[in-house]
């Protein structure tokens, strides 16, 4: 799957390793929560970056104490309507202070890009390469935000008074 990072298509150095499959000897690998929980020591003994993939019913609280072990947390959208991972992404960023990559995987549609960005996702596994243009449109379509989130956009209620204070 093509990977969008900060609005650009990038080569994805990560491989996602299914539970039944042997881990590659080296190279960055993303594993399931189940694998992490069952083979923690083995995984930590690998001399390569590690990522974890959470299903939509696996909140980041389950890995909160281990977050510094992971360079990537991939959050699944099994269907676009399942919006749990928006909360998970914000919790990772805002509650647990996670600074690594938060990646959206699964059914990731153009019209969700902006919401994902605002919730703290910085990488998206997208359907096809058209997503680059879609990204550009999607993140510039709506410039006004009414609420604080995990991104750096200032909600209008703050802008309003910043401006009037400056006047």
């Amino acid at each position: 799957m093509p990977l969008l990072r900060d609005g650009a298509l990038v080569d994805d150095p990560w491989v996602t390793v299914d539970d039944g499959t042997q881990l590659p000897m080296d190279g960055p690998a993303i594993v399931s929560l189940e694998r992490w929980q069952a083979h923690r020591d083995e995984l930590l003994g690998r001399n390569a970056p590690l990522g974890i993939r959470l299903k939509s019913d696996q909140p980041p609280a389950l890995i909160a104490d281990d977050l510094d072990r992971f360079a990537v947390v991939a959050l699944e959208f099994p269907v676009f309507r399942d919006g749990r991972a928006y909360s998970y992404a914000r919790l990772l960023r805002e509650r647990y202070g996670y600074r690594g990559e938060v990646r959206a995987v699964g059914e990731v549609l153009r019209d969700q890009f902006l919401f994902m960005l605002r919730c703290g996702f910085d990488a998206l596994e997208v359907r096809d390469e058209k997503a680059v243009d879609q990204w550009r449109e999607a993140v510039s379509e709506i410039s006004v935000v009414y609420q604080p989130a995990a991104d750096s956009q200032t909600p209008v209620w703050a802008l309003r008074h910043r401006r009037s204070a400056a006047e």
């Binding site: 676009f80 309507r81 399942d82 919006g83 928006y86 909360s87 914000r90 969700q112 902006l114 919401f115 994902m116 605002r118 919730c119 709506i142 935000v145 009414y146 609420q147 989130a149 209008v156 209620w157």
Partner: peptide, 13 residues
């Protein structure tokens, strides 16, 4: 109304 408009976390409840 304002807070709940296009809320990024809660648009796919």
């Amino acid at each position: 109304r304002q807070w709940s408009t296009l809320h990024p976390e809660f648009s796919f409840l």
